[in-house]
Design a protein around this nucleic acid. Structure first.
Lengths: 188, 188
DNA sequence: GTCCAACATTTGGGCGTTAAAGTAAATATA
DNA sequence: TATATTTACTTTAACGCCCAAATGTTGGAC
């Protein structure tokens, strides 16, 4: 996959992450920023880092998921259902959990439904709500995909668990600052 | 904006980041994962954290950018041009820098061109390449938007610079592990 | 002069958002 | 109690962004 230089047909196959620049683009941007807004450069670099790492991880994850015909969004939805108490959740609830708009859930479940990995059921309690429900086939796929993801260690075999935990901790500060979680939340 | 509970028309206005769950969904997922794949839970939590923080930051950034009629993708492209040596860059080069597909650059520049923030020029050296070029109006908008972004401190006034730098450093390890930058790259 | 590599664009589809609409439940009001 | 208003839940439609594959053009090598 890692094609060293050389675009053309056959390059861009591995969902972006093209040929790497010979330098660190974030360090470069930090330099540029520092000459103009020195007091904001560190924040900018951190934010840019998060953006870029997300992009990189997403690419790896989707490569891992591709053999199972799942996109990351589809996987997230499926796994959420798999972890739910009865294998089903109201559409709106899924939107809250996944932090996406209700309309996005509608579409995601529709696609899963087409592939018979999930199905819609009317709630017996409230006829307004529709329950997205995972099928046995859906559970199988979710399990296989999760195993693959774990195997690939989310693409980060090289990094020790301790460092990963540290990253989670530091990012939790950001999430707290932004109101994603109650301020004083502690680790597991 | 912060509507405490209560969806319906008028909620979901602030680009996702809906009402917060009463618990930390990542800590919850970490728990679930731990019971089944304990040796992978830390990696999973870190990856999930990056994904979620990216989502949160993006929402904040786009809110800040909205008054200038810019999306984050558009801002990135514009800023890249603004920082470039002659205010212009080949389309392909932009794709490399921004880590997006060539087609994405085509569309992004087209939209910027419509708004007269950028324009296309044929390269005098190579008639295959088209140079995306920032206009004076584009520079103005980019500068204003950047100021706004800095003012908002990228939405993270609360977090000290030192912590932000630490995050950048730890994420650089991930980028190195994934091949985004040469292994031994150091900070600025 | 022919063949191949590099660029950019077009086309098609997934995913996300906003805005608007439709139905069902809850609540107010008479 | 009966009707009317408001609120909750989902869906549809329209648009932006991204990727993937196919198309068309130019430059360079043989």
């Amino acid at each position: 996959m890692e094609d060293g230089r050389g675009h053309g047909p056959g390059s861009h196959t591995v969902s972006r992450v093209p040929d790497r620049e010979p330098f660190d683009p974030i360090a470069e941007a930090h330099r540029q920023w520092s000459t103009r807004w020195p007091e904001h450069a560190d924040h900018m670099a951190a934010v840019t880092s998060v953006m870029r790492v997300q992009q990189l991880l997403l690419a790896r994850i989707e490569d891992t998921l591709k053999p199972y015909g799942l996109t990351f969004a589809a996987y997230e939805a499926l796994q959420l259902l798999a972890f739910s108490r009865h294998g089903s959740l109201p559409m709106g609830k899924m939107g809250d959990r996944l932090m996406v708009h209700p309309a996005a859930v509608t579409n995601a479940i529709s696609r899963l439904e087409q592939r018979e990995l999930a199905e819609r059921r009317m709630s017996p309690d409230d006829r307004r709500v529709v329950l997205a429900t995972i099928t046995p086939a859906g559970r199988d796929v979710a399990l296989d995909a999760t195993t693959a993801l774990n195997q690939a260690c989310f693409g980060l075999q090289a990094i020790p668990r301790r460092d990963m935990a540290k990253i989670t901790e530091m990012l939790r500060n950001i999430r707290a600052a932004v109101g994603d979680i109650p301020a004083g939340t502690k680790a597991t």
